[in-house]
Design a protein around this nucleic acid. Structure first.
Lengths: 209, 209
DNA sequence: AGGAAAAGCGAGTGAATGCTCGCATTATAG
DNA sequence: CTATAATGCGAGCATTCACTCGCTTTTCCT
């Protein structure tokens, strides 16, 4: 019974109990990132908060970075789910309606966990950054597809340029709205921002005359 | 001749030679940040590259963060100089012309030292972030002043909202243009981006009819 | 039940690094 | 020329932290 070296030396292996451990570790990492900042997020502390030992931590995550990356992935996946769904059911709407939805969703997405978002933006050194790039690329592709199928409502313009500008703009407004000021601004202001941003983007895409 | 306690225990004190030391330290920090990344930027390494000793380093900078902050400040001051000057001589121009200049300048500013900019954006944990906030606030104030004195060319809109959206948009396009792709994109594409971004912002500000 | 594999443990190790301190060198003043 | 301050030095201290290893406990399978 000793065919394979019986040790699965590292990595994932999930049988119910360990799944909970993995979750606890990711959750703990997110909590510490938000509450104590990236600097204080050490593997020992993560294990402590998660209620497991460092040893267990290293059974499932080969490095500290892997843990942080897992937190980022989880958050990105959550956001991408919303974005994909939205772009899906927006596909048949006219530009005006669709853009308004997208702007709203962008702000909502940034509001899922503003503090975590802030930590990502301000504190975490994105080393590989491949994740973020992939994320951006998918958004770009999806938006481009929408614009492509609504060309008739638009003026003549290079699709990639239009996509780039629209995505950049919407993302920036959402980002700055959520991160900049006193963290929580009145609902009315947010509505104004959505209105105005929508107007800007729609005006940009629609034929000028 | 021993009136004042003769020790200037720490901090700045500049008599020609030390000035050079300080410059060398800041310059070395910038170089290491760009060439080796934030992680490799240790005080010992900085001193080594600057050709001075750690001891000297700590005579002028109370901590590693202070050094990095100095690099950031230097870069921001450079950019703010350009922005201030531009907004100054743009003050009397009509919106169309002014916005085009601003978009161009924004991209140029991001291109002063793209690699350094990238390090700031991706690797450096902005702890206090007071510097960045002050930076943003000043830009906001300047742009707002311009818009205020050109109200007659604009539709009716809250000045702060308009400023917020314009600044966010222009900054985002510039940022993504310089950082995103293959680092160096063709001049023609950049011109297109300037044109289109200008069109968007101007269309947003001008009366609709 | 019983044995094997999976999961969990946590004190300890080794390396990296921010920073200090006592001394050496260079400039300035009288 | 000499005293005093300014500047510069760099070995080493103290700390932090990612990560390992030998062991125990739990779960699964027959």
């Amino acid at each position: 019974m000793a065919r394979k070296p019986p040790t699965k030396p590292r990595k994932n292996a999930l049988q119910e109990r360990s799944r909970a451990t993995v979750d606890a570790l990711i959750e703990a990492t997110a909590r510490i990132l938000v509450r104590e900042g990236f600097e204080k997020t050490s593997t020992n502390r993560i294990a402590e908060v998660a209620g497991v030992s460092v040893g267990s931590l290293y059974q499932y995550f080969p490095s500290k970075e892997a843990l942080v990356a897992a937190v980022i992935d989880r958050h990105h996946e959550e956001i991408m789910g919303i974005v994909r769904a939205t772009l899906c059911d927006v596909m048949d709407m006219p530009i005006e309606k669709a853009v308004r939805r997208l702007v709203t969703v962008a702000i909502d997405a940034h509001r899922i966990n503003p503090k975590l978002h802030r930590v990502f933006a301000e504190q975490i050194p994105r080393a590989g950054k491949l994740d973020v790039e992939a994320f951006n690329r998918e958004v770009h592709t999806l938006v481009r597809a929408y614009l492509d199928s609504h060309r008739k409502e638009m003026r003549k313009i290079d699709l990639d340029v239009a996509t780039f500008i629209c995505v950049s703009t919407i993302e920036a407004v959402a980002h700055n709205t959520v991160l900049n000021p006193a963290e929580m601004l009145p609902e009315k202001t947010v509505r104004t921002l959505v209105d105005e941003t929508t107007r800007m983007v729609v005006g940009f895409l629609k034929p000028s005359a």
